[in-house]
């Protein structure tokens, strides 16, 4: 991390709030009260506001994990860019994978307002000290997997993310607004891709069913452990980082997917799936949480491969990043090479 040369806007000219030289106990109580009131009143917390250390740590962990998921999530889909079966699909897929890099950037940017650098977060990812969504540790075996990821994985992600647009932390909420707006095409393209397959040849239909069979359960796991086992849920809800419980969101997702699967003419691989008139929801079978834990622990089919590839990209790029930094340092002496914004900027916005 290089806090001196690349300070985040939140930390410029000031130490982090609530550190060694932070406020005394009484003052801290007052700050805490002000923070609580702001959260309760649905005001946004902004980078330079005082915030409890645990709130900051929770946000860093969650935003980093989210950012890591975006960039690791590029891999399973990029796996099919070079084999996309039509030029239209090739363009869509490239644009989608590119969006994921962009979303990673928005999120790392949001995390950086909390006083951590992107480099620090990437190091933690590369060393396996921070997680990414375990869904990306499953392989994309056929073209239909691209569709299943769009429909189910992005669908689950959107169900999770839409409430985050109202998250109490301003920069995270703003990043999510941008991301949700851009992602609306991701889910649709996946559904449309599957639709084309189900309306196609027998082989294409079989491919689509096989992909949905493999991605359905891992998608349900994306909402995280059941509410009574979720370590961080309650406090995140209190802080309005999170707005709905894992189980609530999972149920919402299942209810949305069942009719969509029907419209595709595909079945969902759950014999216990049935409409519950009383609850007004779809009942579904038990999730294999042991599988979830195993994948989370690093034993999924692609954990090693995904991380190795990420590390390789980073390491192979080191000389490029160094070269550009060296070039900038050489040319910094004479001031900026060319100010692209100078006239407008000088005359004030």
């Amino acid at each position: 991390m290089t806090p001196v040369t690349t300070p985040s806007p939140s930390r410029r000219a000031e130490g982090p709030s609530g550190t060694a030289e932070g406020p005394g106990p009484e003052e801290e109580q007052a700050l805490q009260a002000r923070f609580d009131a702001a959260v309760a009143a649905e005001e946004r917390i902004e980078p330079r506001d005082w915030m409890p250390d645990a709130y900051r740590a929770t946000l860093v962990r969650q935003i980093a994990q989210h950012a890591h998921s975006e960039i690791i999530g590029m891999q399973p889909e990029a796996n099919w860019i070079t084999r996309a079966p039509s030029l239209r699909r090739k363009a869509i897929l490239m644009a989608k994978v590119q969006d994921e890099a962009g979303h990673g950037l928005y999120l790392y940017g949001a995390a950086e307002t909390l006083g951590v650098s992107r480099q620090e977060l990437l190091d933690k990812l590369h060393e396996g000290r921070q997680k990414y969504s375990s869904i990306f540790n499953y392989p994309t075996l056929t073209w239909a997997d691209v569709g299943a990821i769009g429909w189910l994985v992005d669908g689950a992600a959107i169900t999770n993310q839409v409430p985050l647009c109202r998250c109490s932390y301003g920069p995270y909420a703003r990043a999510m607004v941008r991301i949700c707006k851009e992602e609306s095409f991701h889910q649709r393209q996946g559904y449309e891709l599957l639709l084309a397959l189900t309306r196609g040849t027998d082989a294409q239909r079989a491919m689509a069913q096989d992909a949905v069979d493999r991605w359905w359960w891992p998608s349900l796991m994306m909402f995280g452990p059941p509410d009574d086992e979720s370590a961080h849920s309650a406090r995140s809800m209190e802080w309005k980082i999170k707005r709905h419980s894992n189980d609530e969101l999972r149920q919402r997702f299942v209810d949305i997917c069942v009719p969509q699967a029907e419209a595709l003419g595909l079945s969902l691989p759950d014999p216990d799936l049935r409409w519950n008139e009383e609850r007004g929801h779809w009942d579904f079978g038990a999730i294999d949480w042991e599988e979830f834990r195993q994948v989370l622990k690093g034993n999924g089919p692609c954990n090693e491969q995904r991380l190795a590839r990420r590390r390789a990209a980073h390491e192979n790029g080191a000389w490029v990043r160094e070269a550009a930094a060296a070039h900038a340092a050489k040319h910094a002496a004479g001031g900026p090479r060319r100010s692209a914004t100078a006239p407008a900027a000088r005359s004030r916005a």
Binding site: T82, M94, V97, Q98, A313, N316, A318
Partner: peptide, 22 residues
């Protein structure tokens, strides 16, 4: 250029190369 997806030296360059490829 599409083969670079996921391999670029820095995230900003993932976006740039994909723009050109598109």
């Amino acid at each position: 250029l599409g083969e670079w997806a996921g391999h670029a030296p820095v995230l900003e360059e993932e976006v740039a190369l994909a723009n050109i490829a598109l």
